[in-house]
Simulated scan of single mutants.
Amino acid sequence: MTKIAMPCVVLSGGMGRRMGQLKQNLPICDSTLADFQAKHLKQVFINVYFSAKTRIVNAYGVPTILDDNKIESTTIFNPDFTAPIFGLRSALEALKCDIFILSIDAPFFDDAAIKVVFEAFNGNAIFAKNAKIHPLLGIYPFESLSQIKAQIAAKNYRLTHLLSAINAEFVEIPESKTRNLNRYTDYQNACVDLIN
């Protein structure tokens, strides 16, 4: 498969509250989840980036787009400020082009799933869908940045509202490929499945 020219941004800004630790540091397949995703995605995309509040350490030289907005950097903890919409804004502002988004905790979203998304892409926002929609598995056009900024200004951080506002389209992807690691039991099951 020829490498994809559109940049891939791995959203990694969550606090891992349900997991009990930062997800990027989870040991998986003899490395960390950050290294697992970096290794895989560098084989698929020409340019890969992490997006987070602090630099994501990895063995593959994948840089981090920092979300350094002064409002979100307040010393008073506010869970709203870890919402993925802030990472989307930072990535689109930094790269100034359409971007493929993947959540760091979605290790089963493989080459075949990525290919399905790109084959369906016609310039509009497009995301994986099965029993539910997956706003962190798909493509955000650069033009969606204005709506993202408007929602942040309105303190509306819901990605479902964003997808509706940008007239997102969806492509069917099997649930087995959109699994994410929200809780420690999800992580334990993933370790077994990725080894087998």
Rank of each mutant, 00 (worst) to 15 (best):
T2I: 06
K3N: 12
I4C: 01
P7C: 01
V10F: 02
L11D: 06
M15C: 08
G16D: 10
L26H: 04
P27G: 00
I28A: 01
D30H: 12
S31D: 15
K39Y: 13
V44L: 13
N47T: 14
Y49K: 06
A52H: 09
K53W: 08
T54Y: 02
T54W: 02
R55N: 12
N58M: 02
V62M: 08
P63D: 00
L66C: 07
D68W: 09
I76H: 02
N78Q: 10
A83M: 06
P84T: 02
A91Q: 03
A91L: 05
A91G: 07
L92R: 02
L92M: 11
E93G: 03
D98Q: 00
L102K: 15
S103F: 05
F108R: 00
F109N: 01
D110N: 15
D111K: 14
D111R: 13
A113E: 07
A113S: 15
N122F: 03
N122A: 09
N122G: 09
G123H: 08
P135A: 02
Y140P: 09
P141L: 01
F142P: 03
S144W: 04
A150E: 14
A154F: 07
K155L: 12
N156G: 06
N156R: 13
S164P: 02
S164T: 15
S164W: 04
A165Q: 11
A168V: 04
K177Y: 12
K177I: 03
R179S: 11
R179P: 08
N180Y: 15
T185G: 00
Q188K: 14
Q188S: 10
N189K: 14
N189Y: 12
N189D: 15
L194Y: 13
